[in-house]
C-alpha cells in the first residue's frame, strides 16, 4: 500500500504540491486527474523517488521513502514500473535491450530466461518479433507499448502510468486502455494512472482523485466522480471553460480568469 501524507513541493517560487494526502490500496487502479501543469506528474515522480519533497511523507509498504538514501531508494524503485509520457525508450538500445534493461539491473536472470521473458512481455503488449528494432523505427503507439513492456518486464508490484494515452489517436488510446485493464487482471498489480483524458480515466480506474491547486480535492469511484456536486471537479470532468477553475488566457484577456 502507498500512503502520501501532507506532501509539499515547490519549484522556485511556484508551489506545485501544497499538502497532498492520498492512499493507494493494494490491487486497485487509482487515477489522478487534473488540468495540465497542476502537478500530477510531479506527484507520481515523488512516489518513485525521482523527486524529493520539501515536506511530507510517502509510505511505500510501511517505509517512508522520503528518508531513504539513493542506494536504499534503488531497492524500492525495483517495486515500481513506470510508463513515461513519451515512452522514454533508450535510443541507443534495441527494443529487446530496452525491455531487458530493468530485468538485467533489478532482477538478473540467465540469458535464455531473459530472452524468453522479453519475448513474452512484448507479446503481452501485442508486439511480437520487434526485439531487433531501434525505438526510432517505431510509431508513437508502439513506443508506448514498448515502454509498457519495459515497465512490467521485471514484474513490479506497482505500475505508474504518466499520461498513457496522450498524443495517441482514439483507437490507439483505447488499445492502451485495454492493455492497462488486461495487465491489471493478469498481473494483479497496483496501478496509479495520471491523465486528463476522462474517457480513459473512467475506463481503467477503480477510483479517481482530483488534484487541484496542489491538493487532492476529491477521491471517489468513477460513478461518484461522474455525479459529483463539487463545482471544480464538475467543471473539469465536463470540460467546460466556464466555472471556478482559473484558465490562464493569452492575448488581450491575459491575466483574467473565467
Amino acid at each position: 500500500m502507498i500512503r502520501v501524507e501532507q506532501l509539499y513541493k515547490s519549484f522556485g517560487p511556484k508551489p506545485v504540491l501544497q499538502g497532498v494526502n492520498l492512499e493507494i490500496l493494494d490491487g486497485e487502479t487509482l487515477t489522478v486527474i487534473g488540468g495540465s501543469g497542476c502537478g500530477k506528474s510531479v506527484l507520481i515522480k515523488h512516489l518513485v523517488g525521482l523527486l524529493r519533497p520539501e515536506r511530507g511523507q510517502i509510505m511505500v509498504d510501511g517505509v517512508d521513502i522520503t528518508r531513504l538514501t539513493e542506494q536504499e531508494l534503488t531497492k524500492v524503485q525495483g517495486r515500481f514500473g513506470y510508463l513515461f509520457q513519451g515512452g522514454a525508450l533508450f535510443d541507443s538500445l534495441t527494443v529487446g535491450e530496452n525491455v531487458a534493461f530493468g530485468i538485467r539491473h533489478l532482477k538478473p536472470m540467465p540469458q535464455f530466461l531473459l530472452e524468453r521473458r522479453v519475448s513474452e512481455t512484448l507479446a503481452m503488449v501485442g508486439l511480437s518479433g520487434v526485439e531487433p528494432l531501434k525505438p526510432a523505427a517505431l510509431s508513437g503507439g508502439m513506443r508506448k507499448r514498448v515502454g509498457l513492456a519495459r515497465a512490467i518486464a521485471y514484474a513490479p508490484r506497482y505500475i505508474l502510468y504518466d499520461e498513457p494515452t496522450t498524443g495517441l489517436d482514439p483507437i490507439m488510446a483505447d488499445v492502451i486502455n485495454e492493455l492497462i485493464l488486461d495487465l491489471q487482471r493478469r498481473l494483479k498489480t497496483t496501478a496509479i494512472v495520471v491523465t486528463h483524458d476522462m474517457k480513459s480515466a473512467y475506463k481503467v480506474s477503480n477510483r479517481l482523485a482530483m488534484l487541484y491547486e496542489g491538493r487532492i480535492i476529491q477521491v471517489g469511484s468513477p460513478e461518484e466522480i461522474q455525479h459529483t456536486t463539487n463545482p471544480v471537479v464538475r467543471q473539469f470532468i465536463t470540460g467546460s471553460s466556464v466555472g471556478p477553475i482559473k484558465v490562464p488566457m493569452a492575448g488581450p484577456m491575459s491575466g483574467k480568469s473565467q
Partner: peptide, 18 residues
C-alpha cells in the same frame, strides 16, 4: 541533454540504474 529532456535519465533511475 537529449536523454534528460526525453525523460530517459528518469527512466534509468526507475530501472535501478544511476
Amino acid at each position: 541533454g537529449t536523454m534528460k529532456v526525453t525523460e530517459q535519465l528518469d527512466a534509468l533511475y526507475t530501472l535501478g540504474t544511476h
